Every structure is written in C-alpha cells, then in structure tokens.
Amino acid sequence: MDVLALTFDPRSKAVLLGVAPRAHEPYAGAMALPGVLLGKGERLRDAARRAVIDKLGMPPTAISATGQLTTFDEPSRDPRGPTLSIALWSTLDVSEANGDRVTWTPLDDVPPLAFDHDRIVSDCRPMLADRLWRDPAFTADCWAESSPPHRHWT
C-alpha cells in the first residue's frame, strides 16, 4: 500500500505531499510515496501509519487522520512482479515533527517518483479534491487556518 501523506502549509497556502528517497532496489535513491507491504493480520490504516512513521520519519502523534482512496492493479507497476497497491491518504501535523527523511513538495508540483507513484498521485488528486469538503476530518486536517487556500489542486 502507498500513502499520500498531506499537510497544509499556511505560508504558501498550498497542500504539500510528503515523499522520501527509497532505501532499497528497485529505484534505490529515487523519490517515492511512503509505502509498505501489508503484514499478516494488519489493517490498512495501521499499515499506512507504519509507512508514514518508518518511511518519512514522522512521529505517530503527527498523524491526524487516514482514509482509503483506490486500488492500483497494473501488472507491470512493480519490476519485481505483479503487485497490487491500495492508495490511502493521511493528513499530518508537521509542527512537532523532525522528519529529516521527508521532502515536502506542493501537490501541484510533485517531482518524478519511483514505480507508478506519479500515476497514483495524478489519479488520486481529483479524489482528494472531491473529498475536501465532504469529509470533515480530511478538510479540518488539510486546512490549518480558518480560510481555505486560494489555489485549487484539481
């Protein structure tokens, strides 16, 4: 599963996406969404929390909310063989975080990513925008200030 880890930057009025360099092949050193293999008996939200903590170096207390988006099943999405990925979103409060592994990039200007993560971001952006005003937890966690940002990311 892969996580679109999001935070709102009040200075730039932009939604930021957390990405980090991969530690192992394939694509060692390439930027990627935080992702993990689902452990036996592990729930998706628990795996998403683990991905954010382990891959981005964020403390558990930084994770505000998490939810499921969609599944990616392209047989060639991973060079190691056919692999499903369930995409989840997670909103983060980065004020207390020291995540030195994470790079925060505007959601509308994401650098090239490993695997099919560019497609995951591209396909999930409309779902995130649609969720913005329908999901109170997502909306509250994305907008740290009382007024929404002036920039649209649909």
Rank of each mutant, 00 (worst) to 15 (best):
D2I: 08
D2L: 07
L4C: 01
A5C: 09
L6I: 02
T7V: 04
F8E: 09
D9L: 06
P10G: 03
R11C: 01
S12C: 04
S12T: 15
K13G: 15
A14M: 12
A14V: 05
V15A: 10
G18K: 07
A20Q: 06
R22S: 05
H24I: 04
E25K: 11
E25F: 03
E25G: 08
A28Q: 15
A28S: 13
M31F: 13
A32M: 10
A32Y: 02
L33V: 02
P34Q: 07
G35D: 01
G35R: 02
V36H: 09
L37S: 14
L37G: 13
L37C: 09
L37V: 12
G39A: 15
K40L: 12
G41E: 12
E42C: 02
R43D: 15
A47D: 04
I53D: 03
K55I: 01
L56V: 01
G57L: 06
G57H: 05
P59G: 07
T61E: 15
I63G: 01
S64N: 14
T66K: 06
L69F: 05
L69I: 02
T70G: 08
F72M: 11
F72R: 05
D73I: 02
E74M: 05
P75N: 03
P75G: 02
S76E: 13
S76L: 12
R77E: 03
R77K: 09
R77I: 07
R80D: 03
G81E: 06
G81M: 06
T83S: 13
T83K: 11
L84V: 03
S85E: 15
S85H: 07
I86A: 06
L88K: 04
S90V: 06
S90Y: 02
T91H: 03
T91Y: 04
D93E: 13
D93W: 06
A97Y: 01
D100K: 14
T103L: 11
T105S: 10
P106S: 07
P106I: 00
D109S: 14
L113Q: 01
A114N: 03
H117C: 08
D118C: 01
I120Q: 09
S122P: 00
C124E: 10
R125V: 09
R125N: 02
A129F: 12
L132Y: 14
L132S: 14
W133Q: 12
D135S: 06
D135L: 05
A137L: 15
T139E: 14
A140T: 13
D141Q: 09
W143T: 11
W143Y: 15
A144N: 08
A144T: 15
E145Y: 03
E145L: 15
S147I: 11
P148I: 13
P148D: 08
P149Y: 12
P149C: 07
H150D: 14
H152R: 14
H152E: 13
T154M: 12
